[in-house]
């Protein structure tokens, strides 16, 4: 389903290029959940950004089903983000000017795949029914993350990518949020890749990949 081969990525840093990814390859099947772990600066977020069409590799190939991603221009990458790949970040996930209800349906409506019944079910399962008219700033961190998860799966994407989605949450809340993500990703048929520092959370996923100095070990 999602396939990446020999991904290389470097950034300019203090007058020279810093190699963040040095030939990373991975494959994910539908409904599979994968944890991506590694120390700070190992390239976890960079890999997630490349897979999420948020950035482009210097070299290597990425494909989703039959679509080659690494060759896409900005418009093509934006279309992928809009309709096939959903990304959940640790913070600043939501659009501050929109209510919870508007945030929840935003991406699905953007992709013209809004399903009112599915969104209503998500609202119930995420426990957001009483918060629909609130704005992001009026929510707790856990509540905000639940809205971000709902928005991602409301789209019924093929891949859900999460970049330390529970990093700001306490253990109990983090467990609840992860349960929800896994359940909903499975129910929507999506592959799920999560970047995390927590071995405890990583152990709950189907598979674990460890990044070290830009390589999967």
């Amino acid at each position: 389903m999602l396939d990446a081969q020999n991904l290389v990525k470097s950034y300019p840093s203090a007058g020279r290029r810093l190699e963040v990814l040095r030939g990373v390859s991975l494959h994910m099947a539908a409904r599979e959940s994968v944890a991506l772990t590694g120390e700070s600066g190992s390239g976890k977020s960079t890999l997630l950004h490349l897979l999420g069409c948020l950035d482009t590799p210097d070299a290597g190939r990425i494909s989703l089903q039959d679509t080659v991603l690494h060759d896409l221009d900005e418009t093509g990458r934006a279309a992928m983000r809009r309709s096939r790949i959903a990304v959940i970040f640790q913070q600043l996930n939501l659009i501050p000017s929109l209510t919870v209800a508007q945030n929840l349906s935003f991406q699905a409506r953007l992709a013209e795949r809004f399903d009112a019944d599915w969104t209503a079910e998500l609202t119930d399962r995420l426990g957001l029914a009483d918060l629909l008219d609130r704005y992001p700033e009026q929510l707790s961190g856990g509540q905000q993350q639940r809205v971000a998860i709902g928005r991602a799966v409301a789209l019924r994407p093929e891949v859900v990518l999460a970049d330390e989605p529970t990093g700001n949450l306490d253990e109990a809340t983090a467990d609840t949020v992860l349960d929800l993500m896994l359940d909903l990703a499975r129910d929507s048929g999506a592959a799920f890749l999560m970047v995390t520092h927590s071995p405890r959370l990583a152990a709950r996923l189907d598979r674990r990949l460890h990044l070290e100095k830009g390589r999967i070990v």
């Binding site: 992928m80 809009r82 309709s83 659009i95 953007l110």
Partner: peptide, 16 residues
């Protein structure tokens, strides 16, 4: 940027 970046991440090009 913090207000626009989420919308960009959701699939709007910088041009749009």
């Amino acid at each position: 940027l913090p207000q626009l970046a989420p919308v960009w991440a959701l699939g709007l090009t910088p041009r749009r």
